[in-house]
Amino acid sequence: MTASVTSPDGTVIGFETLGDGPPLVLVHGTGADHTRWAAVQDRLARRYRLHLVDRRGRGLSRAEAPAYDLRREGEDIAAVAEAAGGDVYLVAHSYGALCALEAVRHTTAVRRLVAYEPPRPAPGGAVVGPDARSRMRTAENPEEILEIFLREALRLPEEAIEAMRATPVWPARVAAAPTIPRELDVVERMVFDERLAGIAVPVRLFAGTESPAYLRSAVHAVAELVPGADVVPLRGQAHQAMDFDPDQFTEAVFAFDPA
């Protein structure tokens, strides 16, 4: 079943719902839409009522207000959490985790948050170099943008990209690819600061033991600022444990919210 909610700036945010139980809102990262949770959604839906969000600019949320800002994305997720009835368990991945960290400052509808590798460049560095960002902006088709992102931002080997290409969700990733450059712009400027100290809900961060160093560094930077936050390693996994080890990912989600 699909539903939608109107964010404060007038953008309509669509989401898919399934399962039964307490509300769990899932927020995808860059170069994806709600279908990125396909490998784990049935497992999660055995315990929760899932609300799988399409972030603005893709899927069920294509009609968006013109001025893009991470704060607006936070308002979007807050609106979905409130539409879900409050007392929400929020699980967010990558850029979606940045949106979720913003969202919990806009609403009291979230009771706990898992943030899986919210990105930020290593101090003095960059997620991708200016050449790669330029090639994304001049790419002839969305698939090329996506491939550059996976190869140069996430540091995925070619065999992992080919495995992703063979999945049913690849077309949705390609369709979302035009939003990648603007999100990378935000990530390259990202600074974790004292605003995170104001987060009052329990926060757990996931970090793949095989993830790029800049992502693991970013996880620990957030954990140091959010009161009471801790870090759980996803053993043997990088930035996409939900795809390559769905059992480990699901159990980690359950462990932070025991029945």
Rank of each mutant, 00 (worst) to 15 (best):
E183K: 07
F192W: 09
L52R: 10
M136Q: 12
R165P: 00
G57H: 08
E102L: 12
A153G: 09
R58V: 11
V127R: 14
A122F: 10
L146M: 12
T250K: 04
G85L: 08
L101N: 00
D245N: 13
L215D: 05
E183A: 05
V12Q: 06
D69H: 15
R43L: 10
V222G: 04
R71S: 14
E147A: 10
T11R: 09
S61P: 04
G10K: 06
L24I: 06
A32L: 09
E102A: 15
G208C: 02
F206N: 03
L44P: 03
D243K: 06
L156W: 01
R151F: 06
E140H: 11
L154V: 12
G124D: 08
P212G: 07
A175Y: 10
V191H: 13
Y116C: 03
A126N: 13
F249N: 01
G31S: 03
A78W: 12
R105S: 08
R165A: 04
E143T: 08
A163W: 15
A45E: 00
R204D: 02
A175W: 09
V27P: 05
D76T: 01
A32V: 02
G21A: 07
M164G: 14
V128D: 11
R46T: 13
A63M: 04
Q237T: 01
A3M: 12
D193A: 12
H106T: 00
A177Y: 02
A38V: 09
E152M: 07
A153H: 10
H34W: 06
R155D: 13
A32Y: 07
P227H: 11
A78F: 13
E183Q: 15
Y48H: 15
G125Q: 04
D87K: 14
E82I: 02
R195N: 03
F244D: 02
L146W: 10
A109I: 03
A100S: 14
R151M: 07
A221P: 01
V174R: 06
R58C: 08
R58F: 01
P168Y: 04
A32S: 13
L98W: 08
P142F: 12
A126K: 15
T6N: 01
Y89R: 15
D185N: 02
E224Q: 14
I148L: 15
T2N: 14
T35I: 00
R235E: 15
R137Q: 11
D20C: 02
A132M: 10
R165M: 02
Q240R: 12
R112W: 00
V5H: 02
V5F: 03
P212I: 06
V253R: 10
D20V: 05
L225W: 04
Q237I: 00
G74D: 09
A175P: 03
A65T: 12
